[in-house]
Write a protein that binds this DNA or RNA. Sequence first.
DNA 1: AATTGAACAAAATACGATTATTGTTTATTT
DNA 2: AAATAAACAATAATCGTATTTTGTTCAATT
Lengths: 200, 200
Amino acid sequence: MPDGQFNTTDYDDPMVTRILDAGEQCIHRFGIRRTSMGEVARVGKLSRGSIYRHFGDKESLIQGVFRRRQALFLNRTEAALERLPTLVDKVTHAVVAGRKDTQEGIFASLAQTEPDTVASMFLDPAFYRRSVAFWPPHIKQAQDQGEIASDLDVSAATDFVMRLAVSMTLFPQMGLELKSSSRVRSYLERMLLSGLGDGC
Amino acid sequence: MPDGQFNTTDYDDPMVTRILDAGEQCIHRFGIRRTSMGEVARVGKLSRGSIYRHFGDKESLIQGVFRRRQALFLNRTEAALERLPTLVDKVTHAVVAGRKDTQEGIFASLAQTEPDTVASMFLDPAFYRRSVAFWPPHIKQAQDQGEIASDLDVSAATDFVMRLAVSMTLFPQMGLELKSSSRVRSYLERMLLSGLGDGC
DNA sequence: AATTGAACAAAATACGATTATTGTTTATTT
DNA sequence: AAATAAACAATAATCGTATTTTGTTCAATT
C-alpha cells in the first residue's frame, strides 16, 4: 500500500494474512464465482474497505490467494529438495507433491464447482513462471555432482525438467501407468538421464 | 445405424459427411454452445431427423466433428511421417503440425468464443488416446534402425514421446524459446535421445 | 430403406426486471 | 496511519417467465 501498486504481497502483514485466509476459505467453500468481497470481509471479520486497500480488486485478491498457495508449495518443496541427493529424487518428489496438491488442495475443490476455470489456469503459461525460476540452482548442482551432463545449457535443462514434471502432474497416465512414486522415480531415472538413448 | 450404436462413424457415408461438414462449419462460426441442431440441419440442407439418426444426440455430433478432425490430423501426420527418416524428425513434425492445427484450425476459433471449453478438452486424457496408439510402430522402427535403445519398453518410449510432443504443443514456451521448427528439432534431438545425460 | 417434415413434451436457453456486488469516496473510529 | 462503516453509481448476478432447442415419434416422401 505504500506506492499504490499491488504487485508484491506482504505475507507477514497480519491484515494481509487475514484477508488471504478468508479469501482462500471462501474459494474453497463456494468457488471463485460465488465468492463476494462482502463474504470475504464477513468471514475474515474485517471491512470491505481494508480488502480494497490491500488488493485493488477482486481479481487481485483471487490471484493473491493462488500466488500464496504456490509460494507455500515452492517453499515446502524447496525445503524437501534440499534433503534429497539427486535430481531424479528431486523431480520425483516435485511430481508427487504436485499431484497431491492438485488432487487434495484448493484446486480439487475448485475443480468440483468450476472445472473449466481450473483447466484454464493449468494451461496458462504464467502459472509455471515461478516454478521455472525454481529449478536452475538444482540443475547446476546436479551438473557439479556429475549426475547430468555439464555441456548442457541450464535453461534448456530447466525447460526439460519442467516439461516432464508438469506433464506427469497434469497427466498421471499418458500411455504408461505411473501411479506409485517408485514407478515415477524409475521412469524419471530413465527418461530424465538418458531419454530414449541407451545411456552410453 | 445398423445396430443402433453410434460408436463408429462412417466417414464414407455422404450423409454423415454432410452432417459433420455442417456441424464443423457451425462450430467454427458460432461455437459449440450457440450451435443448434436446427442450424446444423439448415446449413447442411437436411432434416433434423437425419442428424438424430446418425448421431444420437448433440454431444455425439460435437464429438464426431472433433474425432473426424483428429482422424484427419493423424492420417495426414502418418503420411508425412512415412517420408521422414528419424524419430526426431517425426516428433518434430508432429509438434509443428500440432501447433499449427491448434493455432489455426477449429480450436483457434473455438478458443475465441469458449476458451474454457478448449482448455478442458486439452486437459482431458481421452483426447490423447488415439494419438498414443499412433506411435508404437514408429518407436519399433527407430529401435530397429538403432536410433534409440532397444532395451526400452515400447509403451514407455511411447509415453515419453507423447509427453514431450503434447507438452511442446500446449506450451510453445516453457522457459526456453522454442518457436522455429529448427529449434524444436535440435531441442528434441538432444532431449529425446539423451535426456540430461551426456549421451555416452 | 433412408430421408423428410411435422408434432410433441421435456429440457435448456434467452430475455427483462429485480436484486446483489463491485469499486470508489467520505467521514468516523481505533 | 490504518481500519471501519456507510453511501453511492456502475456493473454483474439472479430470478421468474417467454422462447427456443432437444430428443422422440410417426406418417408421408424419395
